[in-house]
Design a protein around this nucleic acid. Structure first.
Lengths: 250, 250
DNA sequence: AAGACAAAAAATGAATGCAAAATAGCTCCA
DNA sequence: TGGAGCTATTTTGCATTCATTTTTTGTCTT
């Protein structure tokens, strides 16, 4: 490798010499794609901010060609926007966009539940039950973060139990798009909504045990619909106007 | 066999001078993407066939850079595969892949139905009813092709009625992936299954009229599940070994 | 004659170069 | 002082070029 990384910018991750580490990805383009996607999903770039290619190239230590390929893919995934002749910006989600995304996620999880009922094993159910009680513990201790994690794991377990890689990939894609929001959405939970969510989770588990596919499908959809409501409300309050260009005084 | 593609130098479509005609797309890359996607979706390239960049460039009359960008996007969409250092090939769907795709489509339509019930207007329902009777006419006349079209239009109308652009886009993506199969799947319909499908459509319309969301969701899922069954069977019979080179002469 | 090895040819992956478009900067004027 | 208009710089889009990797071809050995 000869291209000395211009010292202009700080590399997004430590400049690993070999491949990207934990993920097996051979091509530079693929590696770039993974890193850029993470970088965007994790919210390191302010929403709506213009992101000059040159800067990204310097940050990543590569030329523009593979970067542009990665950008095109990220745009296709809905994470960024590509304005003709005007560069890439992190996609800014309107309230309507969020509603739509939440609904699609709800549909996917609802589908996952239905499919899971057809093929889930007792062991998988047992594992989800364990997560459920773990989550219940967090609930009792008012441990928001722990609750969030267990909750997420439960939902992911259901998706995994559906044994449908296509679904899983699609689900992951949407999850990435709303990840930022999802997190804050979780903290939006008021005490009451929290208790409600716990009850819904009981119902989910119950339907799952009985392998009641269409029932579970309904419950999951409603559960996520309620979540959506909380999330959107929360965001509507919090970020009314200026989501970018933070006033540099504070 | 080396390439079922027209010989070198023949553009896929006449080299439109201005913009792409009916679609508004400004960038060359975008134009290329649309054309290539259509080209693949319509099945002009044999499945699993290697597609040399050079040849495509000549066909499209462009250089490799925008073409490669488009290929990356198509790969992200699941239409083609990109083997490292070994070029692009049209993605070959295994039977399992198809099952998964059909299930996800079923989930998406099921979701669409549920959402549609919340917001659909009487006019939209009336339009779907018209399509339904039109389809029934085709059914009575044993007009397979007409039936197929009306059927497709009904399903698309339901998706449209959900008023969720994200869902619509995602649905279109999956529809593209299985389009080839979908078509032949349709011809797989035996007389009996056909009658069954008509009855299911009656039920769909009924649930829609009553705005019975979760009921419609169930019916749609089952309807597509049955379709899936027919399609997969058909393909398992017909294309054991050679999944390409469709004898479309029949 | 069949298989193995090696060199040539071709294809891919990435970098660089160049023209067009957009943004920034500057001058001039009311 | 503030804005319209023009110029310079930056940035994007695409073509071209360079370096590897893969594939093909040809020869030699057993």
């Amino acid at each position: 490798m000869k291209s000395a990384i211009p010292e202009t910018g700080v590399p997004i991750t430590p400049p690993v010499a070999g491949n990207g580490g934990d993920r097996q990805e051979t091509s530079l383009h693929g590696e770039i794609l993974l890193r850029l996607r993470d970088h965007v999903v994790e919210g390191n770039i302010p929403e709506g901010a213009r992101v000059p290619e040159r800067k990204l190239c310097e940050m990543l230590g590569i030329s523009r060609t593979p970067l542009r390929e990665a950008l095109k893919v990220l745009a296709a995934e809905g994470l960024i926007e590509l304005l003709p002749n005007r560069g890439a910006r992190v996609r800014q989600l309107s309230q309507r966009d969020l509603e739509e995304l939440f609904d699609v996620m709800a549909g996917l999880e609802s589908l996952a539940g239905r499919l899971a009922c057809e093929v889930i094993t007792d062991e998988e159910i047992a594992a989800i039950e364990r997560l459920h009680y773990e989550m219940y513990g967090h609930y009792l201790h008012r441990d928001m973060h722990g609750y969030f994690q267990s909750n997420q794991q439960i939902h992911e377990s259901i998706v995994a139990a559906a044994r449908n890689e296509t679904l899983k990939t699609t689900y992951a894609n949407f999850a990435g798009r709303i990840r930022r929001v999802r997190y804050s959405a979780n903290f939006a939970r008021k005490r009451q909504r929290w208790a409600e969510a716990m009850r819904e989770h009981e119902a989910i588990l119950d339907a799952l045990r009985r392998r009641a596919g269409s029932e579970l499908s309904d419950i999951l959809f409603q559960h996520l619909r309620n979540k959506r409501g909380a999330a959107i409300e929360h965001l509507a309050e919090g970020q009314d106007s200026a989501p970018e260009a933070a006033p540099h005084g504070s």
